[in-house]
Design a protein around this nucleic acid. Structure first.
Lengths: 258, 258
DNA sequence: TGTACATCAGTGAACGCGCGTTCACTGATGTAC
DNA sequence: TGTACATCAGTGAACGCGCGTTCACTGATGTAC
């Protein structure tokens, strides 16, 4: 970790180790789809890979370490899928297309990998605390969304009322607002997503949109929309559209014009 | 089940049975807070109650049946807490107060009962399918929200643009919208929440608000807001306020006026 | 190129554990006459 | 009110199971000289 080793050729042993490590994680991931993270069995995974259970300990010091590897893999996979979806839009100024592509990409990944999704966004595993290593992979998917918004803002494609306007009639003022989402503002600044002042109102709205997207996907995947939403594809697109407008995309007055 | 027994006096045995059944479920509920539903141990619950594990089978035919009882209890508890929160607002026409009280009630319950919340709204338990019995209790909390909205609508406190306006520039038309959320519309109608035509646009917005509320609570409880939202109380209130306005409460143009 | 030694992957047996569920039983509570 | 029988709650032993983790081992791969 502390020395950046030059990319010298791997020995056969090293290559084999990497490969088998990947095989174990892959097998665990498949197990996850039908077992849930809490009762993911290290022995079952070993069996799937075709080795004796104790052999897994050459690769992972404990079950928790395996879980961490899974978490990182899943976050990275979701992040990469979302980045790909966004990158597939040729016209980088077509923010609507990028927005839809990314959000649909997230949902598609979730539907294709429900076990992973539950690991990442479902109930936390009791007795397991994710280490710091998982933070950076976790952030990738959010960054895609944030970039679309901040780039759209920089390009002048977003019209957002000043947050003081919004809060003028009884809502919290700017100071309270800034405090409530202080972490997010700090995050946007530290990642260099914005030149100059961070638009507070935009951060709040993105935060809400982000939560709504994952809330909706969770509801769909965990069965809470059964009986209410008949066409989940259409509903998600509808939601994506509204969130896009709520962010201030699409010009002023394009919604709520009565 | 099929005969409505008259409320004749219970025998000592019957009263004892009801009481001990409740004790078992209560013990299981406490266990749930730190174990997760998947590895809820029937033996551990029996130990907590002070009986031998096999004795539990006099009350529940299997672990799954215990889980179902827990599900019903938790849904009912959440539903009752929300109903109480709403009912505590004396002025039934103060829809804003009712909205805030109910939403805060939901969140307060979730924070106070994180194990129950995870059972209801977290990852589904692998290998367990909730029976039909749980549907009605599950619906209680939604009904509170829906009633505030429909009563507000009936009282003329809501101004909502026709959904065709919203979809006029590229979005889905009324027919597609109606199909997407057909179940919800049917639900509102079947519960007699609305006189005459069900306002489609309002149903959609309530659906989205509902999802956003639970999405936010899940994010908070499952740790996804750490680092972004610094003051979760303030953030939730802020969200509740915005959802309230998005529903059309608060008069026309009270938001997005630029 | 060859030999001696160190490193490492994988084995198989064993540990102690807790689990869900079954079953024959005991003794207390309830019911019929 | 009293007796005979049925119902039911709770016991304790047992079942077969799978789990995470440890440990001494074997044999193959890599390294130093």
């Amino acid at each position: 970790m502390q020395d950046i080793s030059p990319p010298r050729a791997q020995t056969a042993r090293e290559r084999a180790r990497d490969q088998i490590t990947a095989e174990i994680v892959a097998a665990a991931r498949i197990r996850l789809a039908e077992s849930g993270p809490a009762d993911l069995s290290l022995r079952a995974v070993a069996r799937d890979v075709g080795m004796v259970s104790s052999a897994v300990y050459r690769y992972f010091a404990s079950r928790d370490e395996l879980l961490t590897a899974l978490l990182v893999l899943a976050y990275d996979d979701l992040g990469a899928a979302t980045e790909r979806a966004d990158a597939a839009v040729a016209d980088r100024d077509d923010f609507q297309a990028r927005w839809f592509a990314s959000l649909r990409g997230i949902r598609r990944w979730a539907l294709a990998n429900p076990g992973d999704y539950a690991l990442l966004y479902g109930s936390p595993v009791p007795g397991y605390a994710a280490p710091q290593t998982t933070v950076e992979p976790a952030v990738r998917v959010i960054l895609v969304i944030l970039r679309i918004v901040t780039e759209g803002h920089a390009a002048g494609a977003i019209v957002v009322p000043a947050s003081s306007d919004v809060g003028s009639d009884g809502g919290p003022g700017d100071a309270a607002l800034a405090h409530a989402v202080g972490g997010a503002v700090q995050f946007v600044r530290s990642r260099g997503l914005v030149d100059g002042e961070v638009p507070l109102e935009l951060v709040v709205r993105t935060l809400i949109a982000w939560t709504t997207v994952f809330g909706t996907i969770s509801f769909e995947l965990f069965g809470h929309l059964v009986g209410s939403v008949t066409d989940t594809d259409a509903y998600f697109d509808l939601l994506a559209d509204r969130l896009f407008r709520d962010l201030g995309f699409g010009g002023p007055g394009s919604r709520d014009h009565d």
